[in-house]
Design a protein around this nucleic acid. Structure first.
Length: 714
DNA sequence: GGATAACTGGTTTTT
DNA sequence: CCAGTTATCC
């Protein structure tokens, strides 16, 4: 028997044991949110709710798996009947069972990020848009804008007006491109990530399937509700039966979230979903979890201080009974290079107290960890990186998967292009001709191409042959690997052994799957779980990918202007505030140790030199007594700065003369908003509203941001 | 004409 | 490190 009374606090218990009807659990960081969901699952099962009636929607499949696993342990029985996963993976499953009508019975495959780029490039070329025009947005930028428009459900014009007005002259072209891309997907039987959600919504609007799904899932739990977008909220309403469908449904939806941790507005997430939950689900109970069990007092002080300056509706104050704990350290390395060394050294120290899997380094963007990755490699500290390039996006993995996708969906153009391009002499033009000839069954055109590239014909035969085999993932993939290995060695003469080893893992991963298409879809939907639960590596992760996780020791890199907050987030207040919450999420991942790093300079290849950078505004506004400041001097020596120092904001700016980017700024000025006195003309590169500008001083190799701390007239 | 090598400039965040 | 562009080669 589970002892709900002693295992849970009062609010948690209320959430876990509440009866039928909609519930919103507003759970602050570290307040036992996961525990609450796990116990809720167990409680439902104990109350005799059929496992297959439970649907758990989470932000990652891993999170769902872990929660179901923990609930199973609690119950002392399996819980494999319950469904768990992301909205996207759930949508894929439902659509596979009931495919959209427009497919007319043809199989479909999923596109990942790079596929979308390829497709857009193709559409752009065939419409002859933006050729040679420097002001035309790049393919990846277009992909982002189109997806944002769909996720926010706003016309492209509005997205451009609000966040990319400089592309407005291209609005008409971009709108044509958007339409062409939609047609293209339908022709090729392809769904992108956004399609999954909108097609699921359509499916749920069809009474038969919708009714069946609603009947099946009588109990729905949604985690991280603050980061759902509009269509996801409608899906929850449709599934939960909140909409009046003329049927008797119980509407047992439990949504769990924390608006202070909403960090996905860039992809259309809206906190309105969580704020309006009581309106969308009349009669909803609202339960708040506010006591933090995760972090020490000092860590929580920093987190609370960050949020104290947030926009009003996001403010929040967490409390803990663990007032003890080590101070949060603010470390000022001389440069991002030496930062890597200091962090590696610090990790060594931490490894004396904690196992590797209890240590994480977090950063704003994937490339921020490059220096550190090299330093760790050099120091012999094994790590695993989340965010950035994924396993399934590595070129050789995409090659192999392309064969599998062709087996499933012979119209899959991106996959076809990949396979064809493996043959030397075949480029985009040949691919296009070939694909056209194949769809039109133009024998003459086909044979002329095959005459020039006999290897291609062999490849097509190979794929056709695979189609006749039983569709067992392991067998098909083994055959593909055998076929692919010679090509691998030819394509990657310098590092094919490493890549080959990576590919062998595919077989292991596929072993758990009954169907090939399910495996291929999962690969696109989420990077696979590491094969062995690797406890010997520390974690490197983007803050976004660290969501929902926690470690004993957390180190945050590059808390400087332009990096954290991202330079893209400076123009609009909402974006800036999201960066603040992002840092809040980063800090609240830490249980006992939190180190914040703010290098005084960043090496820039473009500028061929070192750029002195200001500290992140989030650090500058932090009261100096919530952190302990350490400054790197010569030879990597860290010196503690006297804590009696005044607040950076009120400190008079100090004049620093330096040798123009080559010298080392005096330690006293490092970490403060720096004032450079420069004798020479500067050029304003960019105005960053409201009150900053980026200025380049060519003669000095300096590029700096003038902020509100400096007078513009100087 | 089309493929590929060499170069350049700029790097968000994710399903 | 990667995508887009230009220069070169077949």
């Amino acid at each position: 028997m589970i002892d709900y009374a002693t295992d849970l606090n009062e609010a948690q218990r209320e959430a876990v044991t509440c009866g039928d009807g909609p519930v919103l659990v507003v759970a602050g960081a570290g307040s036992g949110k996961t525990r609450t969901i796990v116990y809720r699952l167990a409680w439902l099962a104990e109350r005799g709710i059929a496992q297959q009636s439970i649907l758990l929607l989470t932000f990652t499949r891993k999170a769902a798996r872990e929660m179901l696993h923990r609930a199973a342990i609690l119950l002392n029985q399996g819980l494999s009947g319950a469904q768990g996963g992301t909205f996207h993976s759930f949508a894929y499953g439902a659509l596979r069972a009931s495919p959209p009508a427009w497919l007319e019975g043809r199989p479909f495959t999923l596109m990942d990020g790079p596929d979308v780029n390829d497709a857009l490039r193709h559409c752009k070329d065939s419409l002859k848009l933006g050729k040679g025009d420097r002001s035309f947005p790049k393919t990846q930028t277009i992909a982002g804008l189109l997806s944002k428009a769909r996720n926010k459900e706003l016309p492209l014009a509005e997205i451009l007006e609000r966040e990319a007005f400089h592309f407005l002259p291209h609005l008409e072209d971009l709108t044509r491109l958007e339409a062409a891309y939609a047609v293209w997907r339908r022709e090729k039987c392809l769904l992108d990530y956004d399609d999954l959600l909108f097609e699921l919504e359509i499916l749920l609007g069809e009474s038969e399937t919708a009714a069946a799904l609603r009947r099946r899932f009588t109990h729905i739990l949604v985690d991280e509700y603050q980061d759902t977008n509009r269509v996801q909220a409608r899906i929850v309403r449709l599934l939960g039966g909140a909409e009046d469908m003329g049927e008797q449904t119980s509407c047992n939806v439990m949504a769990v979230g924390d608006e202070a941790q909403s960090i996905y507005a860039f992809r259309g997430a809206t906190v309105r979903n969580i704020l309006d939950f009581p309106k969308s689900f009349p009669g909803a109970r609202v339960i708040r979890l506010e006591e933090n069990y995760r972090s020490t007092g000092p860590v929580l002080d920093v987190a609370n201080a960050l949020l104290a300056n947030a926009a009003e509706s996001f403010r929040k104050h967490l409390f803990t009974r663990r007032r003890d704990g080590e101070p949060v350290r603010l470390v000022i390395p001389q440069s991002d290079m030496s930062e890597a060394g200091l962090v590696a050294r610090r990790i060594r120290e931490l490894l004396d107290c904690f196992p590797p899997h209890e240590i994480a380094v977090l950063f704003r963007a994937g490339f921020h960890s490059y220096h550190l990755e090299m330093a760790l490699q050099h120091a012999g500290i094994p790590f695993r990186k989340y965010g950035g390039l994924r396993y399934a996006e590595a070129a050789h993995v995409k090659d192999v998967i392309a064969y599998a996708r062709l087996v499933i969906n012979s119209l899959d153009m991106p996959a076809f292009a990949r396979v064809a391009a493996l043959h030397s002499g075949v480029g985009p033009k040949t691919v296009q001709r070939l694909h056209l000839a194949l769809t039109l069954r133009d024998e003459k055109a086909l044979s002329s191409v095959f005459a020039r590239f006999p290897g291609l014909l062999e490849d097509m035969r190979f794929v056709a042959e695979l189609r006749t085999l039983p569709q067992n993932p392991v067998d098909i993939l083994s055959a593909i690997l055998e076929h692919y290995f010679p090509k691998l060695e030819a394509a990657y003469p310098d590092d094919w052994p490493r890549r080959r080893q990576g590919l062998e893992e595919i077989i292991q991963m596929a072993a758990g799957y009954a169907a090939l298409d399910g495996f291929v879809a999962d690969l696109a939907l989420e990077s696979p779980e590491e094969d062995e639960e690797d406890e010997n590596r520390i974690t490197l992760s983007t803050v976004h990918s660290a969501k929902g996780l926690e470690w004993n020791a957390v180190l945050v890199l590059d808390l400087v202007e332009d990096r954290f907050p991202s330079r893209h987030a400076l123009a609009r207040q909402d974006d800036f505030e999201e960066e603040r919450r992002l840092l809040y999420v980063a800090c609240t991942r830490a249980r006992r140790h939190l180190d914040l790093y703010a290098p005084a300079s960043i090496y820039s290849r473009a500028e061929r030199g070192v750029l002195y950078v200001g500290q992140s505004p989030f650090l500058r506004e932090l009261s100096p007594d919530v952190v302990e400041t350490w400054i790197e001097g010569f030879g990597g020596v860290l010196t503690r700065r006297a804590s009696a120092g005044q607040s950076p904001r009120s400190a008079a700016p100090r004049a620093v003369t330096d040798g123009g980017g080559t010298g080392t700024p005096g330690a006293g000025a490092v970490g403060m908003p720096c004032r450079h006195r420069i004798f020479g003309p500067g050029k304003v590169i960019k105005h960053i509203p409201p009150d900053r500008m980026q200025v380049h001083f060519p003669g000095f190799g300096l590029k700096i941001i003038l902020s509100e701390y400096l007078g513009f007239d100087e």
